[in-house]
Design a protein around this nucleic acid. Structure first.
Lengths: 250, 250
DNA sequence: AGCTTTTAGTGAACATGTTCAACTTTTATT
DNA sequence: AATAAAAGTTGAACATGTTCACTAAAAGCT
């Protein structure tokens, strides 16, 4: 398992990770070589690779850390309208990762190549995805105008997807201080606020459910089989199953 | 300029490119090394680099080629409802790039790191973006239910953005034969068809215009300044200026 | 033709992510 | 303590994208 190593090893590992993240934050991801990390951590190149099979693996850890912190911050979010809570959560997330812009870029970058598991939608990240998805659940259920339970799961899935897109947008946003992203968020809040009353109406609810059914499985760990999303809106309370143990990093 | 080289050089260049694209298609992008390419093309490693400063640059050329072909195919699309034409264009695009899944993945992957110019949203691709954006203009104006001219530009920008997202989705889609993507397209067609009548109504048109104003500049070449998208919906007929000479590859 | 300049082409060398066989230290066992 | 097994650690070596000083061919000029 994971936490059953010698304390010494654990300490070494953490030391290397912290060193790496520090370098990532200060000089950027690409500019930080594994040799830099080893040197700064005062160990050999090989040792870094003992604890992190690939450079990206360190980013993964960062991602998890951010998710954990975000979880806490969101749990403290005051009740309020759904739109406001959603945007606040996103803003908190962006604030948190802003130190690691290029590093997160690497994560998403790797995520784009359908190969590496160390990617936003890769297998290795399944646990974190589940966790973040859960955060959006809290965002929704904690809203003063939360939709009825049957819709919560679907909405969480869609929020998760939108969240991903916004981070993508943010990564690309070259405007000063990423003001364009914040404009987008403002727009999102207003629009979502305006749309909120319609969420319960079938002409809106049904397409949303269908969309969640299509998009959700992309976030799932592997996929067993064929009930993916045949025809209409199957309200079977999933769409992005969370059956993966969260802290199950190998 | 570009086409002012010796015919011999031009030929060599094309030969290398074709060899490379062939290898990309048959064994994947990452699996094809520059040395492979040079060997298969019967030239030295250095020569390949003389014509293509980086490996990604070859992908760029592929992207441009696809854009050109798509342009032609779309121009032959029969008149019909907007939704159908849009989805048909996307499908044509996907069909075209399906041979080069991993290769396109590389393009988008690089595109995610905000560094490299050889990226979907990078400077080097500005010309191609403009071109593709133009394709969506044609998609719109050629529809039997085309919106009024003032909206065409905005809609083209949004279509371009959605197109990017769909390719992203497609790249990640691990379902057999990418059926999930096609489901998404079906959903998109139906939804867009249903929404089409509302496009002219201010409560819909205004937010769309605003969104286009926010998103559009991301696709622009560099950005001059500050009129990016201040407050309300500025219908100033742009949102994604196409003032870049299309074939201006340096 | 003989010279110069520009273009085409080469392959060794470098940087960096990654692997691996060997070495050292720690822990468990007798 | 002596020995064996496991865990920790090392640095050389490899693969691959990229660079560069250099050679070979071609074109231009007198």
């Amino acid at each position: 398992m994971n936490s059953k190593q010698t304390p010494k090893a654990q300490k070494t590992r953490e030391h290397i990770l912290e060193t790496a993240l520090g370098l990532f934050a200060s000089q950027g991801y690409d500019e930080t070589t594994m040799r830099d990390i080893a040197a700064a951590a005062g160990c050999s190149l090989g040792l870094a690779y003992r604890y992190f099979a690939r450079k990206e693996e360190m980013v993964l850890e960062l991602y998890e850390q951010c998710a954990r912190e975000l979880e806490e911050e969101v749990s403290k979010l005051p009740p309020g309208p759904l739109a406001g809570r959603f945007v606040s959560a996103i803003e908190a997330d962006l604030r948190r990762i802003s130190l690691y812009r290029t590093t997160m870029g690497a994560l998403f970058s790797a995520g784009l190549a359908p190969n590496s598991e160390v990617a936003v939608l890769g297998d290795r990240v399944a646990g974190i995805r589940t966790r973040v998805w859960g955060i959006f659940r809290v965002v929704i259920t904690g809203a003063t105008d939360a939709p009825k339970p049957a819709q919560v799961t679907q909405l969480a899935t869609l929020f998760y997807a939108v969240h991903l897109l916004i981070v993508l947008f943010w990564l690309q946003d070259r405007s000063p201080a990423q003001e364009r992203t914040h404009e987008l968020l403002k727009f999102g809040r207003e629009t979502l606020g305006r749309l909120r009353p319609l969420l319960g109406l079938p002409p809106v609810a049904k397409p949303l459910a269908r969309l969640a059914g299509i998009v959700g499985p992309m976030f799932g760990p592997v996929e067993s089989a064929e009930d993916a999303g045949g025809g209409a809106a199957g309200e079977d309370e999933n769409g992005s199953r969370g059956s993966v143990p969260i802290g199950a990093g190998g």
